Amino acid sequence: MATALITGASAGIGAVFAQELAARQTNLVLVARSEAKLQQLAQQLQEQYKIQVDFLIQDLTEATAATDVFDAVTEKGLTIDLLINNAGFGEYGSFAELDGEQQLKMIQLNILASVALTHKFLPGMRQRRNGGIINMSSVAAFQPMPYFSVYAATKAFVLSFSEALAAENKSYGVHVLAVCPGPTDTNFFQEADFPSMLADVAAQNYTPSEVVVREALKGLENKQTTVVPGALGNQLIANLPRFLPREGVLSLWKNILGASERKK
């Protein structure tokens, strides 16, 4: 039976990945900061699907996080067949006015943790000539976004990094996929402190988390390198830079995302 490691597994898309993979009889290693939520989810999935579920309490913004996770998995004698780098967060606002430490933590979690975990688990997959890595990016990855600058930049890194790894590791039987969802039915926009007006617009265009996860797993099975799940609107956002000059894209997103800033 295969084993998947999921970061950010206590809620949102990570928890849905856990549910869907458990239903497919995949053993799990769940990683997040919330012990109570992980313990509850692990117990529920073990009882419902009769699989093995381990969980690790870990803050992935810590410098040694990837090593700590890898060492814990190794000590348990587990082999990771599927790595899902799902943990991440965003924050809305003018970069100059946002907390600098929080922006660095975003880079640490969205980029450095994913790179470090991938570097830990990828060599074993290559040696076994089998494995998969899903990196959660975003439709924000396809263009710079004023008032969402650091988040969009981190997701652009994840997209580029994933596509490059997909090409490097295809011949080793390891498939790497970047998943680029648009607005999804999680607490993302509330936690990112989006103005209610923008959050309400996003809510009208939500893709269910279950759809994101199923399309991601289907994309991995089909050996795709990039998946933009959900409605046509997500495809339009992802392809804007193909139809508008770069300055036009910047102006568009400044007007959309900066609407609340202009009211200050």
Rank of each mutant, 00 (worst) to 15 (best):
M1T: 09
L5D: 07
I6S: 02
T7Q: 02
G8L: 11
A9D: 09
S10A: 15
V16G: 00
F17T: 03
E20D: 11
A22E: 02
Q25Y: 04
N27T: 05
N27C: 08
L30R: 00
L30N: 01
R33Y: 14
S34R: 14
Q39Y: 03
Q39F: 07
Q40Y: 06
L41I: 03
A42G: 12
Q44A: 15
L45W: 05
I51P: 02
V53L: 08
D54V: 00
F55K: 00
F55H: 10
D59G: 08
A63S: 13
F70S: 15
V73M: 09
T74W: 06
K76Q: 15
K76C: 14
I80D: 06
L83E: 08
G88Y: 09
S94A: 14
A96L: 13
E97Q: 10
A113M: 11
S114W: 02
V115F: 12
A116F: 12
A116H: 14
M125H: 07
P146F: 11
S149T: 10
A152T: 01
T154S: 11
T154D: 11
S160A: 15
S162C: 07
A164S: 15
E168G: 10
E168Y: 07
L177Y: 04
A178D: 05
N187G: 06
A192R: 02
D193F: 04
L198G: 03
L198K: 01
V201Y: 09
Q204R: 12
N205P: 00
S209P: 00
A216M: 04
L217K: 00
L217W: 02
N222A: 15
V228F: 08
G233L: 13
A238R: 02
A238W: 03
P241A: 08
P245T: 06
G248Y: 11
V249A: 13
S251M: 10
L252Q: 08
K254Q: 15
G258L: 12
S260V: 03
S260C: 05
R262I: 13
